[in-house]
């Protein structure tokens, strides 16, 4: 079984049937390992729930497009695609749709949020923790990455509740929404695009015609900020600054009168509650008159 380095496959022509067959033979077991890892995490059966087929499809897809002349090891090239295929199959499976294996309350929701986290942090598919927002040594870097994941998962859970129309549970997340609504409009726009509209950070950057790194790094700072606010509610903190690469976008949004979708959401909710309260008062007055 090959180690997957590009040199091993240099004698093959990219895209040839011989190379595809060789790559499949060498890495089929490894692809199956990816499927098993996903199944283990989500309490599914890697074969009965079709993850093996997804992984195999991802392997074939990657093998057909792999060019050893680029010098990239095959496993580094293929891992993301195979992982994507495995998770797609998992989500399509009957077990997932029916919540099989997610017996405790909230477990199915955990699965859904877990799957969404891979969209927000695609590097996870390559076995990489999100880049740390701090540079203070290995342990602190790992904690920083974990905080990003937790803040991101909380954001996804909050919006998941809003989408389901579960107002009573969404109220429990009002602190989260309040924190996001206090952010600069450009920060709110990033969070809305990524978490509500499901855009990738690359798409957001492309729409704004700026470097993707600006959005990626700002997103990390936002999550770090959100986590700090949640973990230290009584501690005052300065507002999150906008990095230079985003300032032109922020200025444009301000000129256009953009307040931020989460600010609008809270404002709309406040207006709704005012109208509701006014309606209730009116109704009680009328009832008093009738009686």
């Amino acid at each position: 079984m090959g180690s997957g380095s590009a040199e091993e496959y240099m004698s093959y022509e990219a895209g040839s049937e011989e190379l595809v067959a060789k790559l499949v033979e060498d890495h089929q077991g490894w692809a199956a390992s990816i499927a098993r890892s996903v199944a283990r995490a989500w309490n599914l059966d890697w074969q009965l729930d079709g993850l093996d087929g997804g992984a195999y499809e991802g392997l074939i897809f990657s093998a057909r497009r792999y060019d050893p002349a680029r010098g990239v090891p095959f496993r580094a090239y293929a891992r993301r695609r195979i992982h994507e295929s495995s998770t797609e199959e998992a989500r399509k499976s009957k077990s997932w749709q029916r919540g099989v294996g997610a017996d405790a309350p909230g477990e199915q929701e955990s699965r859904e949020i877990s799957a969404m986290l891979f969209n927000v942090f695609p590097e996870l598919r390559e076995g990489l923790l999100p880049a740390s927002a701090v540079e203070k040594g290995e342990e602190e870097s790992m904690r920083s990455s974990v905080r990003q994941l937790l803040a991101s998962a909380s954001m996804l859970a909050t919006l998941h509740e809003l989408e389901k129309g579960g107002a009573d549970r969404a109220i429990e997340y009002k602190r989260m929404i309040g924190i996001i609504a206090d952010l600069e409009p450009v920060h709110q726009a990033i969070m809305w695009s990524v978490y509500w509209e499901g855009q990738s950070m690359r798409q957001v950057a492309s729409d704004w015609e700026i470097d993707e790194l600006n959005v990626i790094r700002e997103h990390k700072q936002i999550l770090q900020f959100v986590f700090s606010k949640l973990a230290n509610p009584k501690k005052g903190s300065t507002a999150l600054k906008i990095r230079p690469g985003l300032r032109p976008v922020a200025q444009t949004l301000k000129r256009e009168g953009f307040k931020g979708p989460f600010s609008d959401l809270l404002e709309g909710a406040a207006v709704f509650l005012l109208v509701l309260a006014a309606g209730l008062l009116l109704a009680s007055d009328m009832l008093g008159l009738l009686i």
């Binding site: 955990s110 877990s114 923790l129 998962a153």
Partner: peptide, 12 residues
């Protein structure tokens, strides 16, 4: 649990 599952599914 969501975060744990994500980390777990990332480790091959």
């Amino acid at each position: 649990n969501a975060v744990k599952q994500t980390v777990d599914a990332s480790i091959v």
